[in-house]
Amino acid sequence: MNNSLLACTFTLAGLGLIAWPGARADVETFMDLRNIAAVQGDAAAGKANSATCAACHMQDGISVVPLFPNLAGQHAEYMYWRMREIQQEARADSPMTALLANLDDTQLRNFSAWYASLPPAQHAEPARGAASHASEGARIWSEGDATRGIPPCQGCHGRKAEGHPLAAEVIRWRLVPILRGQAAAYVTQRLNAYRDGAHTVTSSARMMNGAAANLDDASIEALAKWIETGESK
């Protein structure tokens, strides 16, 4: 090799070294949840420490304040990773941020296991099938809206909002929350957040960003109502 080649090599290598520290930009800590393991936890320990949680989410995990979600009977994986998401995002406007800030991984798992073990809220069997087109929410839930690009929520959340049909066999489908009987106000708030792209830090959130992208306010309201009450008008 000739001298000029060596000179160029060293110059470029030097440039590289100088540029290196600057090149290390902050990479967003992204949580890829597509390959998660099952979430195990000590439900009894979770119950023992759940006094703070119960203040809003009640002892039985079925909250009375519409903005606070029901937790009873929800998939442990969903709850655990939702709490991790809240910790990661650390949003100032969320009451949960401060509440979860000091919890460690074991505690999160225990809470998840505890609330997953509780019986879910009982509600009337949601109307379904062709007869329920009367309800806008039901229609969006079961068929979506092709003209607006809204996918049928039942595809992932189950025909009766009971969760993903393969949740028992495939772990990652337990990240899809069981929505049946969930508080409408809470659902509205969450769908608004997904539609507006507020959550981007997990793969599930990215998934929901797309699913909710084409929802308008009226659809969100209709869906939330259907989810909570199963009402067909």
Partner: peptide, 11 residues
């Protein structure tokens, strides 16, 4: 693409 092929499944 570090995010892979689909949000719906890994790998």
């Amino acid at each position: 693409d570090p995010h892979g092929t689909s949000w719906l499944s890994p790998l």
